[in-house]
């Protein structure tokens, strides 16, 4: 009957047949991340396979194609920067997330806490990220404080102090942006459901926890994807507080050999690969947690516009 048909609506499986473009994409992703993984392992353990920053194969192997030889020569150093880019992004979004939940909850359900949350969110969203990093790094001198902590800068696995400052900055920043996405998602859950939860005797907190949040978190995924992409790109600003992430490395190599275009194109490709991976993963996540019978938000919008 009509209501049963919708079950098959959201499926992406094309009856076991493989889409050649999708297969190519998966292969490319496996190659890229496999190579990155090996590079990182190599560098963390002080040159497991080759010397730190040196290509697995000598660039001269690719002399027939100068662009490729160039890429092979400098990609290893950029790969080390990609590690920090990925680290900053993941830490920013992961640590910002629980703070964002509290902020969004306060913003929607709080009384006095609503104003505290609003103030925080507006202040962070109303000032440039670079200025925030300056406050933490130069203004508060956080880095010299972190330098005193045990292990920092001496044990190779623990990143140096500037990285810590950047992680704190991105967490503070991302919490505010994620809170706004979450607030929108919470407000899009029909309030009647919370009323129904209260009507069977659940407390306000339990109603939010078991009924509102599970849905709001799903609705927040598109916003969350935006935030992830934002962080990948804006983690480049950590360069200005000395963090040797992807952009910083490309920039400092270019200042030696003046091949700006080539290096930034290479770095751009890395950023593109990160962004594509991120959007792909969140899109898969969204499909996986989709509520049967309910169209995904972008599909709903599309339907409405037709």
């Amino acid at each position: 009957m009509a209501e049963r048909e919708s079950r098959t609506g959201g499926s992406i499986d094309v009856g076991g047949r493989y889409d050649p473009i999708e297969v190519l994409g998966i292969l490319a992703a496996a190659l890229f991340w496999g190579w990155l993984g090996l590079r990182w392992l190599n560098d963390w353990f002080g040159g497991l396979f080759v010397r730190e920053g040196q290509a697995f194969l000598p660039p001269s192997t690719f002399e027939f194609l100068p662009a490729l030889a160039f890429a092979v020569e400098f990609a290893p150093e950029l790969a080390a920067g990609v590690w920090l880019t990925v680290l900053l992004t993941i830490v920013g979004i992961a640590l910002g997330f629980p703070i964002a939940i509290v902020l969004a909850g306060a913003r929607v359900y709080g009384r006095t806490t609503r104003w505290v949350a609003l103030g925080y969110i507006e202040l962070v969203r109303g000032t440039p990220l670079l200025a925030q990093l300056f406050v933490l790094y130069y203004g508060l001198g956080l880095s010299s404080f972190i330098r005193e902590l045990p292990g920092v800068g001496t044990v190779s696995v623990i990143p140096e102090q500037a990285v810590w400052v950047a992680m704190i900055g991105f967490t503070i920043n991302s919490a505010a942006y994620q809170a706004e996405y979450l607030r929108g998602a919470i407000e899009s859950v029909d309030p009647g459901q919370l009323r129904a939860a209260r009507a069977i005797g659940l407390s306000q907190i339990d109603g939010i926890r078991y009924v509102v949040l599970p849905q709001a978190l799903r609705y927040a995924i598109p916003g969350w994807t935006n935030e992830l992409i934002y962080l990948i790109k804006y983690s480049s600003l950590a360069a200005f507080i000395t963090v040797p992430e992807l952009f910083n490395r490309a920039s400092s190599i270019a200042s030696e050999n003046f091949r700006y275009l080539a290096l930034f194109s290479l770095a751009g490709l890395f950023y593109l690969a990160l962004v594509l991976t991120a959007t792909n993963l969140t899109s898969r996540l969204e499909d996986r947690v989709a509520i049967p019978g309910l169209a995904r938000r972008d599909e709903r919008l599309r339907e409405r516009s037709q």
Binding site: G192, Q193, R195, A196, A199, I200, P214, Q215, R218
Partner: peptide
């Protein structure tokens, strides 16, 4: 005291 709503208010997820 149970309650049944006009708009059903089922938990959508």
């Amino acid at each position: 005291v149970g309650m049944v709503f006009q708009g059903f208010n089922l938990f959508a997820h």
